[in-house]
Design a protein around this nucleic acid. Sequence first.
DNA 1: ACCTGAACACCGTTCAAGT
DNA 2: ACCTGAACACCGTTCAAGT
Lengths: 218, 218
Amino acid sequence: VPRTHRRRAPGERAGLALEAVLAAARALSARQGVAGVTIRGVARRLGVAPNTLYSHFADKSALVEALLDSLLAAVELPAPPGKNWSEDLFRLMSESRRLLLAHAELIPLFLARPTPGPNALRLGEATLALLARAGLRGQEAVDALQVLLVYAIGFAAHEAPRRAGAAPARRRARAEAATRDLPHLRALASELARHPTQDTFERGLRWLIQGIAGAAHP
Amino acid sequence: VPRTHRRRAPGERAGLALEAVLAAARALSARQGVAGVTIRGVARRLGVAPNTLYSHFADKSALVEALLDSLLAAVELPAPPGKNWSEDLFRLMSESRRLLLAHAELIPLFLARPTPGPNALRLGEATLALLARAGLRGQEAVDALQVLLVYAIGFAAHEAPRRAGAAPARRRARAEAATRDLPHLRALASELARHPTQDTFERGLRWLIQGIAGAAHP
DNA sequence: ACCTGAACACCGTTCAAGT
DNA sequence: ACCTGAACACCGTTCAAGT
């Protein structure tokens, strides 16, 4: 038989299928939230038997890990790096929050995930480069990285369901009923009912970056 | 028929059963993680048909909401309040992190949950009281509350699976393989492999509290 | 008011088998 | 190397019915 078709390199077809699987998973999560991301649902969307996916992923959690990392590919690094490390750090974290908000129900999974994928590593590298320019070394730099990630991801996780949820007026009504004996909450009912905003995110982020700047010049 | 037994007040039996349901849910989550908290699992543990639980909760998410809030009952408020608001705030957030760490897999759910239960309200009230002593008013106080909650809960959510996961030596080996082209990550491989600690948590918390103190005296 | 049996439409995963 | 049919042990939820 003449080799009219290029022979598949080992793993090539699997590589293609893997991207297709992730695209299907992304689509399901966008349309139906985390609950929509099931082995059977992804398989259905690909027109394939459910157990086919076990040729590509050890189990469901491995599929979800790959899905999460694939989303981070869309975060753009600040390029070219400006003269001001703290402004670049601010922009990188803001951009991360912005991207995460597009995938509301997945955000908490990013926080808990202990082993970063290739895209998470790329973002970690960029953040550490900025912290090095700030003058942070060793454990200090790693501490700052962790604190920033926790804050940016955590804020998005907190914010997303509130944006999607009940309107402030409704939330306010509910809060007033529940806070009869809680004077501070009661006094701030309308501020508390308001959805969290980018302004609040940015305020906290500046506090952290100030703290980091202080740690760099002790 | 003589009333030899006190008549049940309306809802009384439901009240008792509800605490029993939550105790069963807590036990399951402690022994088997979030995945163990199922309608059918809780019912099994109570020796009751699965659909019985729908007499007490509208659906599974309502059960989980009640479970989460019931855990917060264990957070102790700093009493009596000391002379130093920032020290009290520090202690309240540290105590919250400590408690959350005992329920590793549930922590991300706290972040995303948009409507606080009675125990969450109690903690929010205490935090706002401290922020009022710091001199924060209105939206500023609410911003500070949100930033603090995001950080304390987010840090615990980040920390818990890492503590439970692979030992630092193993993590370090894995990291070295994955960071061949990422010089900053590579240089800090051993610091990054180390589990996050209370020290890191406290450092970030002090940054935030400093920022809050600055906002109070502009 | 609280509880149940039976059923429905789903899950993740495994095994043996096909190409 | 990749895919499948069939099966197993689970899910959440609903409905009609019982006390």
